[in-house]
Design a protein around this nucleic acid. Structure first.
Lengths: 257, 257
DNA sequence: CCATACACCGGCACGCGGTGCCACAAGCCG
DNA sequence: CGGCTTGTGGCACCGCGTGCCGGTGTATGG
């Protein structure tokens, strides 16, 4: 629980300090798992969080979107990371996939119950696969942009392989979230190695990967069990706000395996 | 339009010869493209087809499901084909993918406008990718069932590759449905060949080929003007030390935007 | 100090998707 | 004929999602 409890005071009228998004999500997840997703109404979530029904829709869009709010944030983070990544494209997308897995491992409090909900309700399942499709599309675009335009097939296949490998590892963790994270990263490395091998096969005969001019080729892949922190913020974020959020994130209960 | 018009007589009560599913779908597609998906109400479809609103929900489940009714049928067909297929598993799934593409090419009257609708509405897009995910899951299960249980990763990657290749060719047709079908099949063959090559690579090299990743943690430098901060630190770095270093980095001269 | 502008919130009403329930019409059987 | 099953239409109802409005806190300018 990150900073709950002190919020309940925000009742009454206008002023009403904005309830933290994460608290809303956690409360909603709790209601979903306790009462069932269908049975939980937006009015119920509103009552439980102190945010009005109308504002819930304004901030999250829909009931499902509450469940995937954190995931959406992660997605945009990954996309921005990808856009700013100077490494070899294949390394970049692998690192991006690592980022996604890390996003899941970071707060099991949301991702694990969400996984259970997703498994139970086909509609939520569709929403989940839609998310992975968005990742896949982003990876494909990124890989295809680097090479010539004619290689979108190859890019699509490589991206699909990587997503499949990632999801394979991810699910293995979601089914047993208490296992040693080191094992998870180990599996992730073998999975990405597999993808790399297939990609190498597929790319044979293509021009070799570009080398960014100058600069030492930064090591893109932290060794397994490494601690990675990636922060992506809007360009207009003030330094203080940035530091405050990073501090809060680091001080948070979850250490990245 | 195919076989409408003679239906209008089915008013009044019970008897009402059952309106053909395909006619309902075609009418709905027409309404969707003419008036927009959101603007088209189930009551409108009911009025246009002579089927009551209640029966529409009973037969199709939801408004979206009307659009994908034919696709669902195709899916179950493919699954049954797969279950009865005695060939080499890789050949079987490739043939199954061919079946799907054929299902699209067979009636452009539904698939083409549906593609346009899917492109326009994110919600329908999600539904579409959910369908491809179902195919992918079916292919994965089929491929994994053949080999030992430990190869579900490989199966998943191969299935994902095949689906990606199929979708690549499919979209190229959907964007220009009037082109020569021979070209489409030609592209399909080259795409499946690509998948076959990668699959061969992946299936042959079951020996571990893991390369030990480098050890040196690094701080990749985001391009100037970008709002990305990536920091990689040893796992045992203390929170305070981490924060101090991040603070120094952000406060420093090369602050991120 | 007040006026204006802006952004966010909560309440209300409403359309529509989706479901449970019931009545009714056919086909099939003894 | 009377029961059973199956599919249908009508009706009422719930809940999601949205447009609209009034109110409140904060920032900006005279």
């Amino acid at each position: 629980m990150a900073g709950t409890g002190a919020r309940e005071r925000a009742e009454g009228r206008g002023g009403a300090a904005r309830v933290d998004t994460r608290d809303v999500v956690l409360a909603a997840v709790r209601l979903f798992t306790d009462d069932g997703f269908e049975a939980t109404t937006m009015e119920g979530i509103a009552a439980a969080t102190g945010v009005s029904r109308r504002s819930l829709f304004r901030r999250f869009g829909s009931k499902e979107d509450i469940l995937f709010a954190e995931h959406d944030e992660l997605f945009s983070t990954v996309v921005r990371y990808l856009e700013a990544s100077p490494d070899d494209p294949l390394d970049s997308v692998c690192a991006a996939a690592r980022l996604v897995l890390q996003g899941y491992l970071r707060d099991p409090e949301i991702t694990v119950p969400r996984y259970r909900l997703v498994r139970a309700h086909p509609r939520l399942r569709d929403r989940e696969v839609a998310m992975t499709a968005r990742y896949q599309a982003a990876f494909t675009r990124y890989l295809a942009a680097d090479r010539g335009e004619g290689h979108s097939l190859v890019a699509g296949v490589v991206a699909a392989s990587l997503i499949a490998a990632h999801n394979h590892v991810l699910r293995s963790w979601l089914r047993a979230p208490d296992q040693d994270p080191g094992r998870v990263w180990e599996r992730f490395d073998t999975a990405t190695d597999l993808v790399r091998r297939t990609a190498a096969t597929v790319l044979e005969g293509e021009g070799r990967g570009r080398t960014p001019a100058g600069e030492e080729p930064a090591e893109p892949e932290p060794p397994a069990g490494e601690s990675v922190l990636v922060a992506v913020y809007p360009s207009d974020t003030g330094r203080d706000e940035l530091l405050r959020r990073i501090t809060a994130a680091v001080r948070g209960p979850r250490a990245t395996s």
